[in-house]
Simulated scan of single mutants.
Amino acid sequence: SDALIARLRLEIEKLKREIHGSRSERKARLLEQMELQLEELEADASQDELAAEMAARSSTVRAFERKRPSRKPFPDHLPRERVVIAAPSNCPCCGSAKLA
């Protein structure tokens, strides 16, 4: 909207220069319409800024709450077994001792 406002201001200034050179009703009407459109855009832009400021002031941020896990923990009465798998000392593809 800022670019549109700037473009309309430029066109209004150009039309004002043309009007002062030679009077034309069409140019005068076009100028009036563009000035009205510019006023509306500026009013909308100021209302948007006010709405943004009000939203920034009134917005409250809720504290982060962790969600409960979807699965229940493993029951304590069930047996548990720890399995340790030894890492290979040689590469299974080429047999080299240099592992990356």
Score class of each variant (00 low, 15 high):
Arg23Tyr: 10
Leu50Arg: 12
Lys27Glu: 02
Ser96His: 08
Ile5Phe: 03
Lys98Gly: 07
Ser58Ile: 05
Leu50Ser: 11
Asp44Lys: 13
Ser59Thr: 09
Asn90Gly: 03
Glu25Arg: 07
Val61Phe: 10
Ala56Ile: 02
Ala87Leu: 15
Ile19Met: 01
Ala6Trp: 00
Ala52His: 05
Pro69Ala: 02
Leu50Asp: 04
Leu78Ala: 11
Leu30Met: 05
Ile85Phe: 15
Arg62Met: 07
His20Phe: 04
Leu4Tyr: 15
Glu35Trp: 01
Leu31Ala: 02
Ser58Met: 10
Pro75Phe: 11
Ser46Met: 13
Leu31Ile: 00
Cys91Gly: 13
Ala28Cys: 08
Pro88Tyr: 01
Arg57Ile: 09
Glu32Val: 08
Cys94Gly: 03
Ser96Cys: 09
Val84Leu: 10
Leu38Glu: 07
Thr60Ile: 10
Glu32Asp: 10
Cys91Trp: 08
Glu11Ser: 05
Glu39Gln: 14
Cys91Phe: 14
Ala87Ile: 11
Leu31Arg: 00
Arg71Ser: 09
Pro73Asp: 15
Ile19Val: 09
Ala55Asn: 07
Arg7Pro: 03
Glu81Pro: 01
Ile85Thr: 15
Glu42Lys: 11
Val83Ile: 14
Arg66Gly: 05
Leu4Ala: 15
Ile5Arg: 10
Glu35His: 02
Cys91Asn: 10
Ala100His: 11
Lys67Pro: 04
Pro73Thr: 14
Val61Leu: 14
Ile5Trp: 02
Pro92Ala: 08
Leu30Arg: 07
Lys16Trp: 02
Leu41Asn: 00
Arg7Ile: 14
Ala45Phe: 08
Leu31Phe: 01
Arg17Ile: 02
Arg62His: 13
Glu49Ala: 13
Lys16Cys: 02
Glu81Phe: 05
Asp48Gly: 04
Leu8Glu: 01
Ala86Phe: 08
Ser70Glu: 06
Ala63Cys: 07
Asp44Val: 09
Glu40Gly: 06
Pro69Met: 00
Ile5Val: 13
Gly21Arg: 01
Pro79Ile: 06
Lys67Asn: 11
